[in-house]
Write a protein that binds this DNA or RNA. Structure first.
Ligand SMILES: [Mn+2]
Ligand SMILES: [Mn+2]
Ligand SMILES: [Mn+2]
Ligand SMILES: [Mn+2]
Lengths: 215, 215
DNA sequence: TTAAAAAGTTAGATTAATCTAACAAATTTA
DNA sequence: TAAATTTGTTAGATTAATCTAACTTTTTAA
């Protein structure tokens, strides 16, 4: 598999997590490329039995395609945790490096990382790490955006790996495990008044709330 | 620079280390590709001022090209040492992984590796690691192939990074720092009778001797 | 239920990196 | 020095990944 094909599989897997059907349009948007480019690549991926594709129909991943995608995600997430816990980088800077290292072809390399980390189940952003067979550990968490006022939650994950967003969380002293108490929910823009770690009071926009996973 | 261009620069640099002029033929052999492919790439590299090239003439690297090559070698060699000393891989398995990781674009990543290793000067094969400006540390060592019978040397480097060769050295208990005493040199095939670490006696072919650096 | 908009496909071009076949220059050898 | 060999270049094709422009199908909305 080429690096480009691997990136398509990752994008496909990500899109398959939402309710919406996987369409050429959505893939193009996800990857920041044009639709005709996607059309030709999905034909290629279909020929390799990684997806099911028929003109004008919604696209589906095959078991084979999903497995491949999860093995790449495994490499990505193991790398992120290694960069943070072994190499001492921040959770806001590991994603971009992992985007490159996830394409390294070496079982030895990633198995050593896995061993050194003690076969971890979650990455620095709270995302589950598939095992060597592409199986995901069970986990439950929901976006803060669906939460009620007056209740207290624990941050267990973030859905935006972008440096800007995570650096913003850093300035608020938010890390995985931090407590978030919802003081009030504003109906007009769905923003939330929150109390962080029992001390910092601030306002989260709806977008921010959608990107914070809590239990 | 593309991954391919980076690999050409490394090949060019390696060829520039020998006496022979750099020719299209030698580049093609080094990279295992055909001459016309090389011709078109050297035009490209010349356009980018990384080499000087005129039809039918010997090829030379520019200062810019050499600097780039050394920065890639720096990443390669830092990676090899990191894989061995931090991740516990053997010196016979680090080269192939480093061939991939050397193309990762992230100063942060390689500077952390450099820091964690304490700004090392040599890689697991005894090769000097260029500094962040592309400057090489001074070092002197010569191939065992030029050595005399009756003298005792110390292994300081190997010129073949291939797994097969290094695994062979492992079976002999040879590592950097091992002693090699030359018992006898056979004129007809230039092979050598040697005593390793004061205990193992064996014969090295001329090829093997050429690949062992000693002082 | 038709017209407009959105989504998708096809055709054809481009770029990087490679190849083979044919030709040309340089070097070696007789 | 002339012929043979080696080395190098040119021309043209191929593959992967991308694009724009034009056309088609599907969906939405009047
Ligand atoms: Mn990530
Ligand atoms: Mn992550
Ligand atoms: Mn190496
Ligand atoms: Mn080395």
């Amino acid at each position: 598999m080429t690096l480009t094909e691997e990136n398509y599989l990752k994008a496909l897997h990500r899109l398959s997590q939402s309710e919406e059907p996987i369409t050429v349009k959505r893939i193009a948007m996800q990857l920041g490329i044009k639709m005709p480019t996607v059309t030709s690549m999905v034909r290629n991926l279909a020929a390799k039995k990684l997806i099911r594709y028929e003109k004008y129909k919604a696209i589906e991943m095959t078991e084979k395609g999903r497995r491949q995608a999860l093995l790449i995600l495994r490499k990505h997430r193991l790398t992120e945790l290694f960069l943070k816990d072994v190499m001492g980088l921040g959770w806001e800077e590991v994603h971009d490096i992992a985007e490159q290292i996830e394409h390294i072809q070496s079982d030895r390399f990633f198995n050593r990382i896995d061993e050194m980390l003690g076969h971890p189940k979650f990455d620095p952003h709270g995302e589950p790490i598939p095992d060597a067979n592409g199986k995901l550990p069970f986990f439950k968490a929901f976006p803060l955006s669906g939460c009620e006022a007056g209740k207290k939650y624990k941050l267990t994950g973030v859905l935006d790996h972008d440096g800007g967003f995570l650096t913003y969380l850093n300035t608020l002293g938010l890390t995985l495990g931090s407590s978030i108490e919802v003081i009030e929910v504003h109906g007009f823009d769905r923003s939330m008044e929150v109390l962080l770690n029992g001390k910092t009071r601030t306002v989260f926009s709806f977008i921010v709330c959608q990107h914070l996973l809590v239990i």
